[in-house]
């Protein structure tokens, strides 16, 4: 059923499987190529969703990533084992898609009418506007220079909605390690945004 909704298809996506396994084996070129391919898919889905401003109430990061995955998988016969690798990429993509989108919107709306955005769920004592998302993005980039793994973990948790266990499985680490890395990264980012 999952493939029934797929119309047409990019013939080149067929080799995503190969790209994935090559990238797992450390082939940087394959990884970039994969990144590019998946990007277009995810961007088109996410943009379609994000386009419905002002109500952002329908968005669901995990749902988006899953949808992108399922569409690609349906088209290419992606083996289940590759889903994890896929998520790592998708998380990065989600980050760029969301931040780009917010930046664009802010450009459009400059001159007031900013939507207040909170980067925490409850007890939102520290409301930040959309600029804060960009600052988070910058802080994350800074973090990636200091602790690449920590930054990836934040991407997967925050931008792709993955659980600690998922992240652990994707990165082939123990959940305890991921939890520690997550804690460190979060403290780092919180500090950066508080400045």
């Amino acid at each position: 059923m999952l493939s029934r909704d797929i119309q047409g298809g990019d013939p080149k996506v067929g080799d995503i499987t190969e790209l994935l396994s090559a990238s797992r084996d450390g082939d940087v070129a394959a990884r970039d190529e994969l990144f590019r391919r998946v990007h277009s898919e995810l961007v088109s889905i996410a943009r379609a969703r994000l386009a419905q401003a002002p109500a952002l109430t329908e968005l669901d990061a995990c749902g988006l990533v899953n949808e992108a995955y399922v569409r690609l998988a349906g088209r290419t016969g992606l083996p289940g084992a590759d889903r994890r690798a896929f998520y790592a990429y998708a998380a990065r993509l989600m980050r760029s898609v969301i931040v780009d989108r917010l930046r664009e919107r802010r450009a459009l709306k400059r001159g007031g009418d900013l939507i207040r955005v909170t980067v925490s769920t409850e007890n939102a004592q520290d409301p930040v506007d959309q600029e804060q998302f960009e600052r988070l993005d910058a802080a994350l980039t800074e973090l990636s220079r200091i602790d690449e793994r920590g930054a990836r973990i934040v991407e997967m948790r925050f931008f792709a909605g993955l659980s600690i266990e998922d992240v652990a499985a994707t990165l082939e680490l123990s959940p305890a390690t991921v939890k520690r890395d997550w804690m460190k990264s979060r403290a780092f980012l919180f500090r950066a945004l508080r400045r």
Partner: peptide, 29 residues
């Protein structure tokens, strides 16, 4: 020291606990 404080505050505020879209949504909605 800064990081330890940040950690405590981030945990208390639920910082980054929701995913990015949920965070956007909560504020907009």
């Amino acid at each position: 020291r800064t990081l330890l404080e940040a950690d405590a505050q981030a945990a208390a505020a639920g910082f980054l606990e929701a995913d990015a879209l949920a965070a956007l949504r909560d504020s907009a909605g």
